[in-house]
Design a protein around this nucleic acid. Structure first.
Length: 661
RNA sequence: GCCGACUUGGCGCAAUUGGUAGCGCACCGCUCUUGUAAAGCGGGGGUUACGGGUUCGAGUCCCGUAGUCGGCUCCA
C-alpha cells in the first residue's frame, strides 16, 4: 500500500499504523491529510502523513490535553463524586473543570499531582474508541455535563472543543497494561500513545472556580490548572518565567520602590502616587504633552462630573450605566408629605471624556478650515469596575486617560488615521516599547447592536485596514470585536519578557456625531457631519505606568527614573567634592543627591542599587586628586576614572536621548 | 458580582493540640569611617484587618463585614 510520508512516496504494509512509520519517540501523533490522528491510526491507501513532534505547537497541545485526562482520572479516583466538565489544553498548560461537592484545596492538588505521577508510571495506553451517540450516552450516563455536550455537538460548543467534533463521537480509554480499562472520557483526541510520554514535566498550578460553559448564569465548577512540558527542564524554565513575572509585578515593585499605593481608606481601585511615582508620572505626562503639542493637538480641560442629560444624549446611561458610579442626587426638595417641591438633578462621575470634547466642538459653528480638530486632555474618569476584576494599576476605578478626540472630514480620514497611528507607535517607542502588532476589530455581520449604515462601516473598516497594513506591522483580525459605534485598531505591545499588553486604541465613531448632531460648514457652504476618532495612547496613565514598571522590572531608564544619580563618597571627606559635581548636575535638571548618611559605602551601593538608581557616582582620594569619578551601574558594571566633564556628558546625554543604561 | 485562599509593627516572616505576640530589614540614638551589594551596640514601635460569638482563656475555633490574591464573568 502506498502513502505519502512528509511529501515523499512511501510503501507500507496493509494494516500499518503510525507506530510503524516513526522510530523517533518524540513523534507522538500524526497529521493525516491535514487532520490530527493518534499514532495508532491505521493508515489508508493514499494517505498523506506527517509526524507531530512533542515539542511542536500541535504536539505540546496534545501532551497537555493528555495530561488533563490524567488529572481527570486522578480526580475521579480520589474523589468519586466528581463529575467531569471540560479539560482542554491552553497556553503553556491545561485545565480541567469538575463538579465536586467540596472545592479543592492546595493539599488536594498535592495529592492529585502525586497520583498523576503514579499513573504516568503505570504505562496506561490512550485508546480511541469510536462510538455512536447512543453508546456515548450509555457509557457516560453518570456524567451530566458530558451528556449535555453530546446533545450540543460542536455546533453550539464552538470551534476548538476537545470533547466533541462535527463528525462522530469518540471515547478515549486509559488502558492498563493488563488490558483493563482504568478510566475513560468523551474526547476527540488525539492523545499521546501512552501515559509514560507525559513524564514528569507537569505540575498542577492552581485551582479556581469557573462557570460551566463560561456563562455566569450557570453553575460554577472547580477548575484545576496545570502546566505540562516535554521535559522537566522545560517545566522548570516555565516556572522560572512565572517567577520572573512575579518579581516584576508592578504591585510589588510599587510598594518596594515607594511609587504608589492603594490605601484601603480611599477605596478599591483608587491609587495614590507617592513622590517617586509622581516623578515618573509627571515626566511621562510632560513628554506626552510636548509631543502632542508638536503634533498639532490642542489642550482642553473638562470637569469630573456632569448632569445626567449629557450621558443620556451620549447614550452612556442607556448602554453602560452598570459600569458607572451611581448618581449623586442634588438639589431635590420635598415637602412635609414627601412630595417633590423642587425637582432635583442627578450628577454622574464621568466614565469617558468624549461628550465633553464634543460640547467644546459644538460651542460654536465650525468650518472645514478648522478640521482636523484635535483635542487632547489628561482626563480623569471613574468606572465602577466589579470588585473581582480590579488589578493593581492595570484595572482601576479611577484613572487618567491621555485622551484625544479628532474631528475630521471623510476626505481627511485616511491621512489622519495614518498620522495618528505613526504618532502613537513613535511615542510608544520613546517610552521603550518597540515590539508591536496591531489588531483590527470589526463589525459582526448581522448583529443589530452595531449602529451606523453599512456603507460607512465598510469604507471605514477598509480605510483602517489599509492604514494598518501600511504600517508594516503584523495585523491580527478581530471580527466582531468592534465597539457598537465603530471599528478600531488597537496596538498590542510585547514587553521585555514577551507578554503582550493592549496599549493604544484608535477608534472610529459614527454614533456620537449623530447623537450630538455635530456639523461643520464645508467649502460648498453646506453643513456636513464630521467623523470622530477616539484615541487613547497609553490607554490610561495608571495602566501604562504599571506596564512600564513591569517592562523595565523597575529599572526605569534615566529620563524616567525618580532618582537619576546618587553620589557615594568613599569616605565623608570626599562628600563635598561630590556635592560640587551634584550641584552642577542639578543645575542641568538632574534629579540626585549625595548620600552622606553614616552607612558604609558598600551598604550605600547596595541600597541605591536595590532602589534602581541608574547612576551611582563614587569618589575617594584618587578621584578627588585626578578630578574624576567612578560610575557604578545597576548591572554591577563599573567604569573608573571618568573625568568630571565626561561624567556630566554621559549622564545628561543618556537623559536627553531617553536611553536605557 | 461569583468561587476559593489569605489578612500578625512600614516591608518580609515566626508563634506546639486555644495558655496571653517574636525575628530580620527599615526607623531612631550612639560608636566607627578610604574604593564598588548588608560595620557594631542600644532603643522605640503591634488592641494580631474590623465587628460579633464560643471559652476560665482566642493571633489560633465559629459567624459577619472590609480588603488583598488567584481564577470565572466583564472590560463601553
Amino acid at each position: 500500500m502506498e502513502i505519502e510520508l512528509a511529501g515523499k512516496t512511501h510503501q507500507v504494509s496493509e494494516g500499518a499504523t503510525g507506530f510503524d512509520l516513526f522510530e523517533d519517540r518524540s513523534v507522538i501523533a500524526l497529521l493525516v491529510n491535514g487532520e490530527q490522528k493518534d499514532l495508532a491510526y491505521a493508515l489508508q491507501q493514499g494517505d498523506s502523513v506527517e509526524g507531530i513532534s512533542i515539542d511542536s505547537d500541535a504536539g505540546l497541545s496534545i501532551l497537555r490535553h493528555s495530561t488533563a485526562h490524567l488529572l481527570a482520572q486522578a480526580v475521579q479516583e480520589l474523589f468519586d463524586e466528581a463529575k467531569l466538565g471540560i479539560g482542554p489544553p491552553i497556553q503553556d498548560g491545561f485545565y480541567y473543570d469538575f463538579d465536586v461537592p467540596e472545592p479543592f484545596n492546595p493539599e488536594d492538588l498535592k495529592r492529585l499531582e502525586k497520583r498523576m505521577k503514579e499513573l504516568v508510571g503505570k504505562s496506561q495506553k490512550f485508546v480511541r474508541v469510536e462510538v455512536s451517540d447512543d453508546e456515548a450516552k450509555k457509557r457516560l450516563a453518570h456524567e451530566p455535563y458530558k451528556l449535555e455536550l453530546i446533545g450540543l455537538k460542536s455546533a453550539d460548543v464552538g470551534e476548538g472543543s476537545v470533547e466533541v467534533g462535527a463528525g462522530g463521537l469518540s471515547i478515549y480509554e486509559n488502558v492498563n497494561p493488563d488490558g483493563s480499562v482504568a478510566w475513560f472520557d468523551l474526547c476527540r483526541g488525539p492523545h499521546v500513545p501512552n501515559s509514560r510520554m507525559i513524564g514528569k514535566g507537569f505540575a498542577l498550578t492552581r485551582v479556581a472556580a469557573a462557570y460551566w460553559r463560561g456563562n455566569e448564569n450557570n453553575k460554577q465548577l472547580q477548575r484545576i490548572y496545570g502546566t505540562a512540558w516535554p521535559t522537566v527542564e522545560a517545566k522548570e524554565a516555565y516556572l522560572e518565567r512565572l517567577q520572573e513575572a512575579q518579581r516584576r509585578d508592578h504591585r510589588k515593585l510599587g510598594a518596594e520602590l515607594d511609587l504608589f499605593s492603594f490605601p484601603d481608606e480611599i477605596g478599591s481601585g483608587l491609587a495614590v502616587f507617592h513622590p517617586k511615582g509622581g516623578v515618573i508620572r509627571r515626566v511621562m505626562e510632560d513628554y506626552s504633552r510636548q509631543r502632542h503639542e508638536e503634533a498639532g493637538y490642542e489642550f482642553v480641560y473638562s470637569p469630573h462630573i456632569t448632569k445626567s442629560n449629557l450621558f443620556e444624549t451620549s447614550g452612556h446611561l442607556q448602554w453602560y450605566s452598570e459600569g458607572m458610579f451611581p448618581a449623586l442626587k442634588l438639589d431635590a426638595e420635598l415637602d412635609a408629605d414627601g412630595k417633590v417641591k423642587k425637582q432635583g438633578q442627578d450628577y454622574y462621575l464621568k466614565p469617558m471624556n468624549c461628550p465633553f470634547h464634543i460640547l467644546i466642538f459644538k460651542s460654536r459653528s465650525r468650518s472645514y478650515r478648522e478640521l482636523p480638530l484635535r483635542m487632547f486632555e489628561f482626563g480623569s474618569v471613574y468606572r465602577y469596575e466589579k470588585s473581582g476584576v480590579l488589578h493593581g494599576l492595570t484595572r482601576v476605578r479611577g484613572m487618567t486617560q491621555d485622551d484625544a478626540h479628532l474631528f475630521v472630514t471623510p476626505e481627511q480620514l485616511e491621512s489622519e488615521l495614518t498620522s495618528v497611528l505613526n504618532f502613537v507607535l513613535d511615542l510608544l517607542r520613546d517610552y521603550g516599547l518597540d515590539d508591536f502588532y496591531l489588531e483590527l476589530s470589526t463589525k459582526e455581520e448581522g448583529n443589530p447592536k452595531f449602529v451606523g449604515d453599512d456603507a460607512i462601516w465598510t469604507s471605514a473598516t477598509a480605510t483602517l485596514e489599509k492604514v494598518a497594513k501600511a504600517s508594516g506591522l503584523e495585523l491580527v483580525p478581530d471580527p466582531g470585536g468592534a465597539a457598537f459605534y465603530g471599528p478600531k485598531i488597537s496596538v498590542q505591545a510585547r514587553d521585555a519578557i514577551g507578554r503582550t499588553w493592549q496599549m493604544s486604541t484608535i477608534q472610529l465613531d459614527f454614533n456620537l456625531p449623530d447623537r450630538f448632531d455635530l456639523e461643520y460648514v464645508a467649502s460648498d457652504g453646506e453643513r456636513h457631519r464630521p467623523i470622530m476618532i477616539h484615541r487613547a495612547l497609553f490607554g490610561s496613565i495608571e495602566r501604562f505606568f504599571g506596564v512600564l514598571t513591569e517592562h523595565y522590572a523597575g529599572h526605569f531608564p534615566p529620563w524616567l527614573a525618580p532618582v537619576q544619580v546618587v553620589g557615594i563618597p568613599v569616605a565623608d571627606d570626599f562628600a563635598e567634592y561630590l556635592e560640587d559635581l551634584m550641584a552642577e548636575l542639578k543645575a542641568s535638571g538632574v534629579r540626585g543627591f549625595v548620600d552622606r548618611s553614616d552607612s558604609r559605602m558598600q551598604k550605600k551601593i547596595r541600597d541605591h542599587t536595590l532602589d534602581r538608581v541608574p547612576f551611582l557616582l563614587l569618589a575617594g582620594e584618587r578621584d578627588a586628586g585626578a578630578k574624576t569619578v567612578s560610575f557604578r551601574y545597576r548591572s554591577g558594571e563599573q567604569v573608573n576614572d571618568v573625568g568630571l566633564e565626561e561624567a556630566k556628558k554621559i549622564i545628561l546625554d543618556a537623559i536627553s536621548e531617553r536611553r536605557q543604561v
